[in-house]
Design a protein around this nucleic acid. Sequence first.
DNA 1: CCACCAGTATACCGATCTGTATAGTCACTC
DNA 2: GAGTGACTATACAGATCGGTATACTGGTGG
Lengths: 199, 199
Amino acid sequence: MTPAASRALEAAGRLFYEHGIHAVGVDLIAAEAGVTKKTLYDRFGSKEQIVVEYLADRDERWRVFLDGYLDAAEGPRVLAVFDASRAWAAQHSPKGCGMVNAHAEISDTSHPAHPIIIGQKEWMLALFTDLVRDVTPDADRMGQTLLLLHEGALVANGFGTFPDAIGHARDQAAALLAASPGHGRAVPGEEAPGGSVLG
Amino acid sequence: MTPAASRALEAAGRLFYEHGIHAVGVDLIAAEAGVTKKTLYDRFGSKEQIVVEYLADRDERWRVFLDGYLDAAEGPRVLAVFDASRAWAAQHSPKGCGMVNAHAEISDTSHPAHPIIIGQKEWMLALFTDLVRDVTPDADRMGQTLLLLHEGALVANGFGTFPDAIGHARDQAAALLAASPGHGRAVPGEEAPGGSVLG
DNA sequence: CCACCAGTATACCGATCTGTATAGTCACTC
DNA sequence: GAGTGACTATACAGATCGGTATACTGGTGG
């Protein structure tokens, strides 16, 4: 990636996240990056491609960021995901999840960015499930619950509905894990799931 | 509200939710509603005002919809919120929460729609907290947790990350309530209205 | 030396954006 | 019958949209 392309992608990412994808034009991206539109179209070919690379880059950076927290984790590794998210939100993401926000603006499921957006949440679900597989008997259900807590926390954090939503989600995740069968005491109600989840 | 204005607001709401606010122009709204732009601007004055009334209307309709479920609730009323959300999502909201999606597109906190968007989540938090106040000792924390589960479920449902995310959130909410100190046994009315409806 | 590449600068294209203007129709009311 | 409010139809203004074209500069490698 050429220096100008790198600067353009950085500017595009910042503007897309802050103002929304449709609200930001290529002229603004070019101006903000100190790059001409010619260079933009030489490097990326279209605005759509800039969007795709913005999301792919953000996804990649998040996973690298998260890996750092997972490697350095001292307690249960699944809780490190929440720690990573709290730090990530404070640094790069005060307005909620970039993928969720992009999903709000991209209706066409055939859009090339769509798989990236959907894929990240599927990856997060698989990650949560994996991380609790040897800690709780029903890892699938626990993984789903943790995903809900995590996504909800990102939304609540972006809205500022109450302070430290991600920290609160982490506390709840820790409580769920501690209450899980096979990890100490049992949780009442856990034995009555009712099987309402479709396979 | 005049008939043309009503039609315009209905069309605007449908288009805004499906394609995003910035992606929908007033010409499209007018055409879809069978209304001229002149009428649009006579009734609303600006696109911004159409956005404001769209969000206020959606908020109002959701609260009325929810009230119906709260009034008819047989089990714990807080669980009726999840039942209402599942039905609402199936009917009006397959792409996640309209307020969250609008928040992704409106960066300026001085935008007149901003208080509506933020206010709905604050209202939901207050609602959850109120609904568990006589069921659990720490209603504030429980209300926050339920809000996270609920918001996360709306996101996961919009993404289709796993089936019946809102039903899963409801199950987890029921388990949390059952496990709450001062509420020893399992919750009656575990069978939801429409408990096994496809999510 | 020269060809190539990254990038700059500027101007332009057609389309679309929000918003306004003019003109006229229809129904209802005082 | 004059007045009024709601509406349609069309045209246009000024700006911006995504995208393209032409012309130029500076550095690098064969």
